[in-house]
Nucleic acid binder design. Structure first.
Length: 500
RNA sequence: CGCGGGGUGGAGCAGAGGCAGCUCAUCGGGCUCAUAACCCGAAGGUCGGCGGUUCGAAUCCGUCCCCCGCAACCA
């Protein structure tokens, strides 16, 4: 076993239902998990929901239900994604879980406090009487609440603060030396720039009067923790930090945090600062993805262009969606989701290229040899070696879309290979030896393709293996080119991707 | 002069000093193992504008224009 690798997504805010952006994050993390586990690393994959906070409390009040009820309902929708998106996570953590999550949060809070980094101060904020809640400056239109057209009041309450300012310099060093590695690199530049401007201390709690739906501050029942300590700590509570669990010791801090570009600052500044203060090692790697636009526009409720991953899956199946999200959206950058482009990629890459290749190879094997190929030595394709080398390099660098491109170039190559070797002519000539060699090369190549696509489209990978007559799981045994492997019997031949 | 990303054939992207490339779409041809699939070929770009460095610039420098994020309590 190689080094353990721990993979996390951000925890989704359980305030509304999942949309395609979060689906991308889940699927990216899932691809990393499947890849590293296939390559022999011991992995642990965590996701979950963030359920506390004023917004959650407010949404529940509007619906006339308790925040707990709303959280349960929405968390359910996120948990359903495990089957819908075919996710391989090991644990799903909910911040409302008093047994699994809260003890770790309280422990981190106490350690930070013991270290003298929590203090009381006045917190000033804008409050709209109409909304009966806090409002951020960003939400204001012309300095007024956009709903009530009223200028908000400035109110202040006494809260606990975290001495974030103390950790700017050391975090800067950790990022520069790549002890905290941020991928892609331009995101690191962004955050270093912000740190240079100086980090302010942040408010770490709210009065229980404004926020009752959260984790109580230890030894002060008038205060409830604000999002930072509560939500970010999920990454270690999910491993069993407070229990000093074996899992925690094994996997922390060898982590890849998969997050969106909107929350880079929280993960590269606030989170490491909290850990430094609490005497816990900082995370190794932070992978930042971009946003998905819908038909070229930002997704928003008012435009009505929010894409529900369920709608895509219903029509095309989960792997078509996974393929698009992982192959078509450049890693780390924004990408667009358009129905037309999606349809085009589905047809050209999955139906015509991969699906048709499998189908023609299997049908020839059946037609010319009755489904089994006699033992015969084949040379390794140069293309095969090149493909694996490039695939592994890209995957290790987390460049999913480039790795996928490499695999599909190989598929392309194999389609050309059939055109060049013309098995139908070999059959007519009665050249059984050449014919069996050609088909063996194709079958063996397809076996390797099932491995390479497994992190991206696992269901298809296993489906292909069944049709090829291979073992169900992803085999770790025959990693190299099998020169004389018998092809005993192929399975039942089915269309891999239907034409839609 | 806040910070960052981007502007390359119809669409989506790659290339970061030396004949402008890939995928899709289009057009022409070929093949018949295959899901009207596959293979071969062609057309299509003054690489956002202007100026400079250089024997040579999409690539380096300057300047301007346009799009998209971030700009601290937004999950």
């Amino acid at each position: 076993m190689k080094n353990p690798i721990y993979i996390t997504t951000s925890i989704a805010y359980a305030n509304s239902k999942p949309h395609i952006g979060f689906a991308m994050e889940l699927v990216e993390a899932d691809a990393f998990n499947r890849y590293f586990s296939m390559m022999g690393y011991e992995t642990y994959f965590l996701t979950g929901t963030d359920e506390h906070g004023i917004k959650q409390q407010k949404t529940a009040e509007e619906l006339g239900i308790h925040p707990k009820e709303l959280s349960d309902k929405n968390a359910q929708l996120f948990m359903e994604l495990k089957d819908k998106l075919n996710l391989s996570y090991d644990n799903f953590i909910r911040t409302s879980d008093k047994e699994k999550h809260w003890p770790s949060v309280v422990q981190i809070w106490n350690k930070i406090k013991e270290n003298g980094d929590i203090y009381k101060d006045k917190y000033e904020a804008l409050y709209c009487n109409g909304c009966e809640s806090f409002i951020t400056e960003k939400e204001l239109v012309d300095g007024k609440c956009p709903i009530h057209k009223k200028e908000p009041d400035k109110v202040s309450e006494e809260n606990y603060f975290f001495r974030l300012s103390k950790y700017g310099k050391i975090i800067k060093k950790l990022i520069e030396s790549k002890e905290i590695e941020i991928v892609p690199e331009f995101r690191a530049k962004e955050i270093l720039n912000l740190i240079d401007k100086g980090l302010h201390d942040i408010s770490f709690s709210r009065s229980k009067k404004t926020l009752y739906w959260g984790i109580p501050v230890p030894d002060d029942d008038t205060q409830v923790m604000y999002v930072w300590c509560d939500a970010l700590t999920n990454y270690i509570s999910g491993l069993g930090y407070a229990k000093n669990d074996e899992q925690y010791k094994k996997f922390w801090p060898n982590v890849i945090h998969v997050i969106g570009k909107d929350i880079v600052r929280f993960h590269t500044a606030i989170w490491p600062a909290m850990l430094l203060s609490a005497g816990v090692p900082v995370p190794k790697k932070i992978f930042v993805h971009g946003f998905i636009t819908s038909e070229g526009h930002k997704m928003s409720k008012s435009l009505g262009n929010i894409i529900d991953p369920n709608d895509i899956i219903k029509i095309y199946g989960v792997d078509a969606l996974r393929y698009y999200l992982l192959s078509e959206i450049p890693v780390g950058q924004d990408g667009d989701f358009s129905k037309k482009l999606f349809q085009e990629r589905y047809i050209s890459d999955l139906v015509n290229n991969l699906g048709n290749l499998l189908n023609r190879v299997l049908l020839m094997t059946k037609k010319y040899f009755g489904g089994s190929i006699p033992s015969i030595k084949t040379d390794v394709l140069e293309e095969y070696n090149k493909t694996w080398v490039s695939y592994i390099e890209n995957m290790n660098n987390l460049y999913l879309n480039k790795a996928s491109l490499v695999v599909f170039s190989f598929i392309d190559f194999l389609n050309k290979f059939i055109g060049d070797t013309k098995p139908w002519e070999l059959s007519k000539k009665g050249d059984t030896e050449s014919l069996s060699r050609v088909l063996k090369i194709l079958l063996e190549s397809l076996r390797h393709i099932t491995r390479m696509i497994y992190p991206f489209i696992p269901e298809t990978s296993l489906n292909m293996r069944k049709q090829l007559g291979l073992e169900e799981g992803i085999d770790l045994k025959y990693i190299g080119w099998e020169e004389v492997l018998n092809w005993e019997k192929i399975g039942e031949i089915k269309i891999l991707f239907p034409r839609i």
